[in-house]
Amino acid sequence: MTKVLAAFLADPTAERYGLDLMNDTGLPSGTLYPILLRLQRAEWVTAHWEDIDPEVVGRPARRYYTLTPDGVSAARVELAALYQHLSKAEGATGKPRTA
């Protein structure tokens, strides 16, 4: 989920579609779309189908996803917590701790 949140936060107001997010995150559709569904249910992301005629445009309509204001705040908090956790795991030397 962190890759998806980071991709959205790169431009929090941008509308993103599935293939665009798959390219940015490296996640396959079977991983990405369940994450997007969870984010929608949490009301961090809204979604809508673009209003086009697929025959005129020559491609299927895209479903666009956008972070909500609450989603922007929550995503920033989640990523900050992750970075803080990772920073602590590296310790003062900047190297990962070993057992």
Rank of each mutant, 00 (worst) to 15 (best):
T2M: 04
T2H: 13
V4P: 09
V4Y: 08
A7F: 11
A7V: 11
L9T: 12
A10Y: 02
D11I: 10
D11Q: 14
A14F: 09
A14T: 07
A14P: 04
E15S: 12
Y17C: 12
D20F: 02
L21G: 05
L21A: 03
M22G: 02
M22F: 02
M22C: 03
N23Y: 04
T25Q: 02
S29E: 12
S29H: 10
G30F: 03
T31A: 04
Y33Q: 00
Y33T: 01
P34Y: 00
I35W: 00
L36V: 07
L37G: 03
R38K: 10
Q40L: 06
W49A: 04
D51R: 11
I52K: 01
P60H: 06
A61G: 09
Y65I: 02
L67Q: 05
D70Q: 13
G71V: 11
V72S: 01
S73C: 03
A74Q: 13
A75D: 04
A75S: 15
V77C: 00
E78P: 02
A81C: 10
L82P: 10
L82S: 06
Y83M: 11
H85D: 13
H85R: 15
A89G: 06
E90K: 12
G91Q: 05
G91A: 03
T93C: 04
T93K: 08
G94W: 09
G94P: 09
G94S: 03
A99I: 06
